[in-house]
Design a protein around this nucleic acid. Structure first.
Length: 487
RNA sequence: CGGGGCGUAGCGCAGCCUGGUAGCGCGCCUGCCUUGGGCGCAGGAGGUCCGCGGUUCAAAUCCGCGCGCCCCGACCA
């Protein structure tokens, strides 16, 4: 093999996931044109293909937020530094990672402004003004925005200095209502993950150590990535009265008594795109879940002569129109001077769930080739008559969604071990999740982390196991928890 | 913030040790030819060699100081 051929192949192929999962991820994000590095360390440019994916995620979530009575609003990027300092554990949690503006218009500011790392404080300030009576409650607001946290170690989508997300903030009259809201939003995240992203998740409660700075209870959905590591993919916090007390968010109840509100907050970020990549992707590249994919179907025309070209292109135009009218997101790859084989590989790398190939033979027969991304090569290809195309495509996209979900679930099951012995536990967290009894003490959690690098991901809401002994200290333990190495 | 690697054309790299005309592959542009799984041929465009300072007749190359990116650890959505 020549040096030239060698070098070209090396250029075309991604590293395999087994060889270097991290490098596979980095190259894929760049080559699929989801995102690019920005000139500032740790910052990310989200490219159109990645942003369209995010828009589809936004729509899927926003629909659910609206359906449960929430409305959208916008709050300022800048927060007076003193606000952050009002809630004790909030300051402690966030001050190491704040970006602070001290100069404006060339003048030293009298009070430094924090670039929001999250908006509990500035929203709390507003809620204190807006809420007077129980009749004003609940307040159910969501924001689509970006926040800044000065992270030391960054990775595209998974952890960047600025990231895009949404943050919901609600205020309620009672503790029960706030808890119900917190749980409702967790359910919404889980529903979205499963039904739109085809990602199986474990909803659960965080330990005290992993809890949001300022929350009473933090819930999260945890997903297993293709390398067995965990990714916290969405969080919902019951803030109790912590922020209500710090910001004097109060209301008069029916008896005329002044009460503090109960607040919640919940968020899901562009990190979720990282989850989609790492859960579904294979050595060929991305595999996007049909409901979120920017293009659900790509059409690759194939021809030799000019006559063939015009026949093929007019068929392709009709096919495209037919699919678009049926509501599919379709792209025709009209690039000239690239072979069909190149385009096949290109769109597979970019994760488009379905590909339609249209050549002269198909035009003659009134058929097309339909190829599904989740099944490689010939196995995933079928000839379909044009009269039946929309029907077949719709069915296949549904099948792909289910297949992706089931493959991910099977992978998670195969890499999750229920362990009661610490020796087994240590083996389990090397390849995936360990589900084990835990006594609930921060000491055990800390020691496990030091000795194995695995952290307590969550205490699953689903507790089928009953009581047992803590996997670390052997003391009685009422609940089981998921431990894993995490992103 | 500690340890490691790296910074030369859009991308991947060679050149640096031993100072002297900046190179290769891919990509890009033009034309021809091809197109059912990463086509081919010919011609062409493209460079503050990460930045600043120093040594030297002369610096991509040697020296100093910065900056950035990636990987591994501590911290985190």
């Amino acid at each position: 093999m020549t040096r030239q051929a060698d070098g070209r192949m090396a250029d075309l192929k991604l590293p395999t996931r087994a060889e270097d999962f991290s490098e596979w991820y980095n190259q894929l994000v760049l080559r699929a044109e989801l995102a690019d590095y920005a000139p500032v360390r740790g910052c990310m440019i989200v490219r159109p293909y990645g942003w369209t994916l995010w828009e589809n995620i936004q729509q899927a979530l926003d629909r659910r937020f609206k359906a449960t009575g929430h409305v959208n609003a916008a709050f300022p990027l800048f927060i007076p530094k003193s606000f952050i300092e009002k809630e004790k554990s909030h300051v402690a949690g966030f001050s190491p990672e704040l970006a602070v503006v001290t100069i404006g218009g060339g003048e030293e500011l009298t009070e430094p402004l924090v670039v929001r790392p999250t908006s509990e404080t500035i929203i709390g300030h507003a809620y204190a003004k807006w809420i007077q009576s129980y009749r004003d409650l609940p307040v159910l607001i969501n924001c689509w925005n970006s926040v800044v946290r000065w992270e030391l170690r960054t990775k595209l989508f998974l952890r960047t200095l600025e990231f895009f997300w949404h943050e919901g903030h609600t205020a309620h009259a009672t503790a029960e209502e706030a808890e119900a809201e917190t749980r409702q939003m967790l359910d919404i995240y889980a529903d979205f993950a499963v039904n739109d992203a085809a990602i199986p998740v474990i909803p659960g409660r965080k330990s005290e150590a992993e809890r949001f700075a300022g929350a009473e209870i933090t819930y999260s959905i945890e997903a297993m990535m293709g390398d067995g590591k965990a990714l916290q993919s969405g969080t919902s916090h019951n803030l109790g009265q912590n922020f209500a007390k710090a910001f004097e968010i109060r209301y008069l109840d029916q008896k005329g008594e002044l009460q503090h509100c109960w607040t919640t907050s919940w968020g899901l970020s562009t990190r979720f795109i990282g989850a989609i990549i790492m859960v579904h992707g294979d050595d060929q590249g991305l595999i996007l879940p049909p409901k979120l994919a920017p293009y659900q179907i790509v059409i690759v025309p194939i021809w030799k002569s000019d006559e063939e070209k015009s026949a093929v292109m007019s068929a392709v135009k009709e096919i495209r129109a037919q699919l678009a009218a049926a509501g599919f997101r379709v792209k025709t790859d009209e690039r000239e001077g690239m072979s069909p084989g190149f385009k096949f590989n290109d769109w597979e790398m970019r994760g488009v769930p379905l590909r339609i190939e249209v050549g002269p033979k198909d035009v003659a027969k009134g058929t097309v080739v339909l190829a599904r991304r989740d099944k490689p090569g010939r196995e995933g290809k079928a000839f379909v008559g044009r009269d039946n195309l929309c029907n077949a495509a719709g069915k296949l996209l549904d099948e792909i969604h289910i297949a992706l979900y089931e493959r991910a679930l099977a992978f998670r099951k195969a890499n999750t071990a229920e362990t009661s012995e610490y020796a087994d536990f240590k083996v389990a967290v090397e390849k995936g999740f360990a589900l084990s009894h835990w006594c609930g003490s921060a000491e055990c959690e800390e020691k496990i982390k030091d000795e194995t690098k695995a952290t307590m991901r969550c205490i699953p809401l689903d507790q089928a196991g009953g009581e047992g002994q803590c996997v670390y200290c052997r003391r009685p333990a009422r609940e089981k928890a998921i431990f894993a190495k995490a992103y």
